[in-house]
């Protein structure tokens, strides 16, 4: 049984205009997204800004009301709930199972609370007795490689990397079944980023953490994720095991994304092709395949008929009419 199964998830925002605030259109921020996360697995959701990756994560956390679709989440070995349709009141007790790691370690920690209290907060809310809380905080500080003395200090005494460790400890306090990390290292300096990436790799190994890793940085994603789902204008265009996706992409957008990343190697300079044009507007997506205006391989069919995400074997999915005939270039 999968830990999480998202099926045909949609999140539309109405565009209203006129005196009667009539709906004149819709921003299709997320428009039919399906994927799953297995127990102990890290799935990365990647794409450029506005592609809907953060909206998907917020739907899973039920920070947003879902327009349609299902989010089936296994609350235990035997029980599954649909987070998309569950009444708000019943979502609340489930929140302990899904925790979040935020992007900005400066904004996500209360500056007036001591680090020990920040980490203990979710335990307190869930009625864990004080003595147990103390032991658990000590355990968590050790887990994220912070000194025990941090407990009685305030966040401002710590660097960005250490604050992010505190944020991770807080997210893990209740032993969540799923961790949603939205750009957890993108605000950090290179040397600190490396420390946090290694910490996440450690935690995956030690705790068998299941994670939805939302990110735009394809290099970071290659280090930490087991599988990758690539999003473009509200839809998933390709899903594959990480190494396969990077070596042999099946969707032209994946190819373009990989080609755009500058590799830290001057001998590879000038070898890449640059995708033309800009990301389509989700309020007014092009007909057919949303990527067709930028796609060097587009044919007439791509301009008319929208491709569906289709399995191609070995755990791969792609939504491209020409996937079977194209021979796309990955990295290395």
């Amino acid at each position: 049984m999968n830990l999480l199964e998202v099926q045909d998830l949609k999140k539309h925002y109405p565009i209203r205009a006129g005196l009667m605030r009539r709906e004149v259109g819709r921003v299709r921020a997320v428009d039919g997204v399906s994927f799953h996360i297995a127990q102990g697995e890290t799935l990365a959701l990647v794409g450029e800004s506005g592609c809907g990756k953060t909206t998907v994560s917020r739907c899973i956390l039920r920070a947003l009301t879902v327009t349609s679709g299902a989010i089936r989440f296994a609350t235990s070995e035997t029980e599954t709930v649909d987070l998309a349709t569950l009444p708000k009141r019943q979502v609340r007790p489930l929140r302990r199972h899904i925790q979040m790691i935020f992007q900005d370690p400066y904004a996500s920690l209360n500056p007036r609370m001591m680090v020990g209290d920040i980490i203990a907060e979710p335990l307190k809310v869930n009625g864990v007795p004080a003595a147990e809380r103390r032991d658990r905080v000590a355990e968590l500080l050790e887990l994220v490689q912070m000194p025990q003395s941090a407990r009685i200090r305030f966040p401002h005494a710590f660097s960005g990397g250490q604050r992010q460790r505190v944020g991770i400890a807080r997210a893990l306090a209740l032993n969540p079944r799923l961790v949603v990390a939205d750009e957890p290292v993108s605000a950090l300096d290179v040397s600190v980023q490396a420390q946090i990436i290694n910490l996440l790799l450690d935690l995956q190994d030690r705790l068998g953490l299941s994670m939805l890793f939302v990110a735009h940085d394809l290099s970071v994603v290659r280090h930490v994720s087991d599988r990758v789902a690539v999003m473009y204008v509200g839809r998933i265009v390709e899903v594959a095991p990480t190494d396969t996706l990077y070596r042999a992409p099946l969707h032209p957008y994946t190819e373009a994304l990989l080609a755009a990343v500058p590799a830290p190697d001057p001998s590879r300079r000038g070898r890449r092709r640059v995708a033309q044009g800009e990301v389509a507007d989700p309020a007014n997506p092009p007909p057919g395949c949303a990527f067709h205006p930028r796609c060097p391989y587009a044919v007439d069919r791509c301009r008319i008929e929208r491709p569906e995400l289709t399995p191609t074997g070995s755990g791969r999915y792609v939504s491209c009419h020409r996937a079977a005939e194209l021979d796309l270039v990955g990295v290395r």
Binding site: A194, I197, L201, V220, R222, H223, D243, Y246, A263, P264
Partner: peptide, 13 residues
């Protein structure tokens, strides 16, 4: 310390 697009799966930095 730089993460690389050419990394191997689960490669530590």
């Amino acid at each position: 310390a730089v993460p690389s697009i050419l990394a191997t799966p689960r490669q530590r930095l």
